[in-house]
Each structure stands twice: as structure tokens, then as C-alpha cells.
Design a protein around this nucleic acid. Sequence first.
DNA 1: GTCTATACAATGATAGAC
DNA 2: GTCTATCATTGTATAGAC
Lengths: 216, 216
Amino acid sequence: MTAAIARAGRTRRRTRIQEENEEKILDAALEVFSTWGYRGATVDQIAALAGMTKPNLLYYFRRKEDIYLAVLNRTHEMWLEPLEHLDAAGDPAKEITAYIDRKLEMARDNPTASRLFAMEILQGAPVLGATLRGRLKTLVDDKAAVIQGWIDAGRLAPVDPRHLIFMIWATTQHYADFETQIRAVLGGKALSPDQFDAAKATLDRVFLGGIGSGRD
Amino acid sequence: MTAAIARAGRTRRRTRIQEENEEKILDAALEVFSTWGYRGATVDQIAALAGMTKPNLLYYFRRKEDIYLAVLNRTHEMWLEPLEHLDAAGDPAKEITAYIDRKLEMARDNPTASRLFAMEILQGAPVLGATLRGRLKTLVDDKAAVIQGWIDAGRLAPVDPRHLIFMIWATTQHYADFETQIRAVLGGKALSPDQFDAAKATLDRVFLGGIGSGRD
DNA sequence: GTCTATACAATGATAGAC
DNA sequence: GTCTATCATTGTATAGAC
């Protein structure tokens, strides 16, 4: 690290101050873009939230689009990760429950990241479009085959694996993306731990057991 | 109608041209607001899509906010309606399946309306907030009691009724709101009737039967 | 009653001087 | 790393033509 600082003047290596400021900017950008969308967000808003002036921010990122790209790239890896853990060798019910729980925890812990993606997709994925058609599609194809394998082996009810994945995405991210609506209906300010547990229990129950039967 | 035109000068009654133009504007506004959000949308865009000039549009709606209010009001009634049909006297499984199917059809037939609401909620429901805490909450409380009644009677598995409703909202609206992502993963341009059927079958199966068991 | 032309103040992104 | 200037865009208002 000391060597890196010593080289900072000559190389492209980031200085400590640069790293800290870029991080502050990206944190602020995540918040603003996820609330207002790309076009609705202003560089001024981001700068204010990051605690710096607009020109100072533009010293780090020349254009508004560069900030958007950086903050999307910083978070999209995180978003794909839980699905990658789905293990063909594991127990189907356990694997799917674990996936649901991981996704739900991510929605709880990173609601703004979830909303940033929601905004991007709602707007037609102008930036992430290629990634969705490439890396995401490959990943889903791969894991859909795993699920289909479980179904073929009679270890899982026969459902369309891809639409099952869509259902899991939808239900888990809903708690981040539509938090305002959920709070309005449930009352209270934020989702309490109790409400979160109820959500988790309901998701696990419906996905694994369905609701068609009576008492269990 | 002739009488209405004759009275047009004296009364507030809309002329035919007014009705047609307001409808064209609201159609365009639905498209633009649902794509860009309130702040991201411009009056110019809406005017262009409606096939008129900006000053001409502003003759019908003086302010941008007025257009937004009008288009939200025009569609939010439609959005609450399916849940109102959930009938306590009906068969639980049939009622819930019918509700899911109605919501899914609405997402398919009115994707832009769904995205308009998604944008509004994502942005913290600045306009619909009061409606969510009022009318929507009352409706959900009411229908949650119906579902709880079914559960207490042993006709439905014990799940949290409110979170079950959230799940149904999430999974059905997902096909409208995240259409871009779904198309990217499934390939092809739009959701084909086949894919729509697969979605419907998967939703019905998972909600009613779950996936925990093997072949059925 | 309907529409166009034009203006204007505010806000935005960006560039360059200091 | 900061301040100021510029230039396009946007919401809104007004005056008047058809």
C-alpha cells in the first residue's frame, strides 16, 4: 500500500483520497439513481448527498453516464451471486429454500441496490441489456437445467424451471422495490423483524408446500 | 350529444375534440411516465407522442403535475378491482386461482399501466401514498380476513394472508414490470402465448400445490 | 373554442480558467 | 481541487391567429 501511494503520482493507481471520494460518490449515486431513475437524477443531487460540490464530483466522473455505469457495475455482480450457489448435488428443497432466503436477505439489506436494478429494467435496461441477454441468460439456462434434473428425477414437482426462478426473483425483490406499498398496507414505518420473518415463512411455505392443502 | 355541443359554450361540458385530445394526451402520458418516471419525463415527449405541440398540450393540462395526476387517477381504479372480486362464499382454491389469473391477464394486457404504478411506488408513492394507506389498506385488511377465515376453517394451509397477497402481486406484475429481463432470459421479442401459458401454469401450481412434493 | 408563435426564468450538464 | 462561464433543455406564461 505504501508502495502504491509512492507510485501514485506516476501510475494510474488510485490514491487513498480518490478511493474514498469515489466510494462516497457511488454510495450517493446508488441512492439518487434508485429513487429518481437515470434521467430524473441530477448530478447536483448526487454531489450534495456525497458532501461535495458538483464540479468536484465531476473531477472524479466526467459525465453523469459514467457515474451510472460505475454504480451499476459495482452492484450487478452481487446480484447474480446467490443463484450461482444453487448446487445440483444438494437436496432440492434445501437448495431452493436457501436461495429464497439469501435473496430475501439481500432485498432486506440492500433495498436501494434492488431498486436501482428495478429502475434500470423498467426503463428497458439501456445499460444492462447486453448483460441480461448474455451472462444472466447463460446462468439461468444453466440453473434451469439443474432444476429440470431434479424434476426428471421425481424429486420436485413438475413446474417450468425458468418461471419458478422468475417467481423467486419477483417475490423476494418485491419487499425492497415495493417497500412503500408494503409499509402502507402493514402500517408502521419500516419492515420489522417480525414482519420479515412472516414474509420468509410465507415464501418458504408457499414455494415448498403450496397453500392448496389444509392444516399441516 | 347535440344538446351537449349546444351547451358547450355555457357549461363545463367537454367538446368532442376536447375528449379526444385529452384521451390522446393521457395515453401518451401513460407511456412516457411509465418509462421515465415523473421527473425523467418531459412535457415535450408527451406532446410529441400525442401528436401535438407542447403549447397545444398545455392548453388542456396547464401543468406537468396535472397530467400525471390525471393518468394515475384514470388507471388506479382498474388496479384495485380484481382483489375486490375475491369472494368469501366461493371455493378458496378457485377464488385464489381466479384472482391470480385475473392479475396475470391485467399485467399482460396493460403492461404500461403496471409500470406506471411500479415507477410511482419505487419513487415512494408521492401521489398515491394517501390512497395506499387508505383505500388499499382497507381493502387488503378486508380480504386478508376472508383468507384467514378459510385458513381457520381448515380449507387453506396456514400462511400469513397479507404476505400471500403480496406474493400474488409480485409474481403477476413481474411479467409486466420486468418484461425486459424476462425477454432477455427467455429469448425472443415479446412474451408468446405459450410462454404466457407456462407462466400461468407455474403460478397456479406453485401457489396451490407448492413444489415440495414429487410428481403428481 | 382551438391552436401557434414566442419568450423567459430555472435548471441541467459540461468545459475551462484559476 | 475549486470557482465561474456556457449552452442546451425544460417548465411555464403570454399574446394573438384561426
